[in-house]
Design a protein around this nucleic acid. Structure first.
Length: 120
DNA sequence: TGCTTGACATAAT
DNA sequence: CATTATGCCAAGC
């Protein structure tokens, strides 16, 4: 078989990265979601790393509430670019999310439930 | 073209 | 509950 044109778009619309961002946008204020949860909602369960990678590719001043995405420990993931997570923590506190002495969030209480029914 | 790193998760200890 | 080890996929070099 031979290749079609060879001309390919670098940024397909159905890019998984965009899908991840779309899910993050659905996170309500005052709630936090884990990377794994976002990945699962994006249809890529188990690919939590790609979620974090997508966040890293987000531009400054994006409309995506990336600050509502935390790791499974309920803490802000440290990134390679030194510090900066302080901004994320400040944004979450501003939305009513409380941090404990270990700078962690009580996921049992603030974890976003993307369920059709709230509970029960 | 192939190896290494990475804003993680889950299971085991 | 904390730490360690392994797996996952994609982007960077």
């Amino acid at each position: 078989m031979r290749k079609p044109d060879g001309v390919r778009m670098e940024i397909p619309k159905e890019n998984p990265r965009s899908l991840i961002i779309d899910v993050v946008r659905r996170i309500p204020a005052g709630r936090v979601a884990t990377y794994g949860q976002v990945a699962a909602l994006a249809g890529i369960r188990g690919h939590a790393r790609q979620v974090g990678y997508a966040m890293h590719g987000l531009p400054a001043g994006t409309d995506v509430p990336w600050h509502r995405v935390v790791n499974a420990r309920g803490e802000i993931s440290s990134r390679s670019s030194g510090c900066g997570g302080e901004e994320q923590r400040r944004r979450l506190e501003r939305e009513g999310v409380k941090f404990d002495a270990a700078e962690r969030i009580d996921l049992a209480r603030y974890r976003w439930r993307a369920r059709p029914v709230p509970w029960e």
